[in-house]
């Protein structure tokens, strides 16, 4: 299993100029982040056709912000990494960007935002990157200031990648202590890859009549979105089974030729079995 990014280096180091460029250039990451941001926006359950002011925590290169802009909302994005925000500026995002550490609290005054989203960011708060970092304190600072910065009844949909059950419990407990209602939502709980965790929180007591969001993919017949990868490998295997021994050898020789290796010319004996010798 590949090491988690949180274990490699602090966010400010990992997403340095090089890291930010690598992140922005990866189409797979872009696609995943976009889907997650769309799901977060859906979980906020904002009233239809009402432009709102939203907060995006860990906005990075502004991928999630683009989703918010497309839905007609204004947003402010915060991130700890300057190079990531610089990349966002280059991408010409429509929201305002602020360099801030979420673990030091959200630096916005009371009842400012109609909602908050976050894609793959808050698990970083569970890590102590420096000797003076205390995850409990940082999480409490984050959730209590986030609670204050949201209007009453506003929602926060925070997608994250927990490392273990203890982290989930820590995050949920911190959020509840800050006064949020709501809790954890798991999409595609039976899948290893498509499984995604969201903290779906409401600032203030739970409202009567409010519909609780439903996780995706809990019905047995619901289909898990499958990437192209599995289908590709199976089709390739089928194709190679259909090819005859001779065709396989010829295609392999062609490939080697294209790679610039010295390959014997094809003849009528190519791909034939040798006769049995005693």
């Amino acid at each position: 299993m590949s090491p988690r990014p949180e274990h490699k280096a602090p966010a400010t180091e990992l997403y340095s100029t090089k890291g930010a460029a690598k992140y922005a250039a990866s189409t797979r990451i872009n696609a995943v982040q976009k889907t997650l941001a769309e799901r977060c926006l859906q979980l906020l359950a904002l009233p239809e056709a009402q432009p709102s002011l939203l907060l995006d925590i860990g906005t990075g290169t502004g991928l999630s912000g683009d989703v918010l802009t497309a839905a007609g909302h204004h947003w402010v994005g915060t991130d700890i990494s300057q190079p990531m925000l610089d990349t966002a500026l280059e991408n010409d995002v429509d929201g305002d960007l602020v360099l801030a550490d979420a673990g030091e609290g959200v630096a916005f005054r009371m009842a400012t935002f109609d909602g908050a989203v976050s894609v793959s960011a808050i698990q970083w708060l569970c890590n102590a990157d420096r000797s003076d970092h205390n995850p409990h304190k940082r999480l409490n600072a984050f959730f209590s200031t986030l609670y204050a910065a949201l209007t009453r009844g506003a929602r926060a949909a925070l997608q994250f990648y927990p490392e273990n059950v203890a982290q989930i419990e820590l995050l949920v407990a911190s959020a509840m202590r800050a006064g949020f209602s709501g809790g954890l939502l798991v999409d595609y709980p039976n899948s290893t890859k498509a499984k995604k965790y969201y903290l779906c929180l409401t600032a203030g007591p739970p409202q009567k009549g409010a519909v609780q969001p439903k996780p995706l993919g809990v019905d047995s017949n619901a289909s898990v979105p499958v990437g192209n990868r599995t289908t590709q490998t199976t089709s390739r295997r089928n194709a190679s089974q259909q090819l005859s021994r001779k065709d396989q050898v010829i295609s392999k020789k062609d490939r080697r030729r294209r790679q610039g290796h010295l390959v014997r010319p094809d003849s009528k004996y190519t791909g034939r079995k040798r006769r049995v010798q005693f």
Partner: peptide
């Protein structure tokens, strides 16, 4: 460059 820097504790220079 249009981005306010609201990080309280300084980013350590030697590791940065």
């Amino acid at each position: 460059n249009g981005i306010p820097n609201l990080v309280i504790t300084e980013v350590r220079k030697e590791s940065g």
